[in-house]
Write a protein that binds this DNA or RNA. Sequence first.
DNA 1: GGATTAAGTGTAATTTGAACGCTTATACAA
DNA 2: TTGTATAAGCGTTCAAATTACACTTAATCC
Lengths: 230, 230
Amino acid sequence: MTATFYQNKDSFLVAADCIIMGFHENELNILVSRRQIEPLKGGWSLMGGFVNAPESIDEAAERIFGEFTGIKDIFMEQVGAYGEINRDLGERVISIAYYALVNIDEFDTSLAEKYDARWVRLTQLPELVFDHNKMVKDTIGILQRKAAVKPIGFNLLGDQFTLPTLQSLYESIYQESIDKRNFRKKLMTMDILEKLDEKDKSSSKKGAFYYKFNKEKYDQLIQQGLHFSL
Amino acid sequence: MTATFYQNKDSFLVAADCIIMGFHENELNILVSRRQIEPLKGGWSLMGGFVNAPESIDEAAERIFGEFTGIKDIFMEQVGAYGEINRDLGERVISIAYYALVNIDEFDTSLAEKYDARWVRLTQLPELVFDHNKMVKDTIGILQRKAAVKPIGFNLLGDQFTLPTLQSLYESIYQESIDKRNFRKKLMTMDILEKLDEKDKSSSKKGAFYYKFNKEKYDQLIQQGLHFSL
DNA sequence: GGATTAAGTGTAATTTGAACGCTTATACAA
DNA sequence: TTGTATAAGCGTTCAAATTACACTTAATCC
């Protein structure tokens, strides 16, 4: 392909880096891997790859995400573009960061092993290569702001979950503890959860009822002017 | 420069597009220009240009902003990366959008004329080339969310302004009317404005007192845990 | 000095958010 | 079988924030 309109312009390698987040044992986790190539081969890194010509940047991010996880159809949004000249020690690369929220329990670890990838607790995130720590930090900011007003947190859970689990998810997103009764009251007022008959007894003798997020009801209430807020 | 680490990877033209916003006659305005080059030469367009190799993407955006306005040191933040394959009809270009908030009255129009640029009311934005309307829409979303919790709106005003003007600024950002007394009460509670002795009599016989945003006081109060909210 | 115009001001009612402790269901051990 | 231990589940009170709402004032112009 030759330039037909824009000539004598510089061109750049463009990468997509994925901040893949999960929730496990009451903590947010991030998937990191050992970098496979030089420079900084073996360093802790986000999942990344180069954008190819025949794909959009969103598609590239989805492809890269799929390569590392085997999962399609996931909640994924752009964080932003990172374009400092020397951000990549190899050569000039502009990177577009994306974050994905996954249900860590449905996660197939076999692919991850291939890339020497592992989940690390957000609170114990190691130093990552290049500007990847900044990407993670920016992601957390987005997550904190967005989870408060959109029901994106449910992407981190299976399709049934208990209220104690949901609460601890929000506690780990906001990094602060929440009053149990106030939290439940707010949820019940919004009326977007469906209570199931089954209980999860793995973490208490009494057991906690499972709930489901009712997306149809949520959409309907939003159309009626409800504002999600947690 | 030859690739030393990353070989056989596709490279891309990268552009920066600027959503330049001002506030005039109680309305948000956006600077648009007639596109100077093919394809779609003459179409309404945001201010844009290609990123050059020796600059970061932020620097490119600042340079392009400066070329069109002559202004340095402006409030400018990234909106995001736009990377659909055919978003630019010329050839494949990945664009990083930035928005800037400027004081429209200090604006030098001579440079703008050179590029056939003009301010148009946000409510009467014409159809722009490529995905520029989407960039504007995304910017408005960011502005609405961010102006509510950070004092970025003041960038759209001169360093002195009246309360009626400030209120109408927020009304045009949120696209809804605000009660005068409640608006003032909230501002006064935050205690971040400094009342001046002078009045602006251009829009009423009584005249409205000028105020200044006190950044030092604001920073200090933020450190003490105050949350800006309007 | 009377009319016009937008600026400036306070209070009551409602809603929202924050704080707080006891009861219940179940498993497991004695 | 009874007792004990554990986390789940539940309601009320108080404070704070938000909303709704109407008259007075300063200055200009005629």
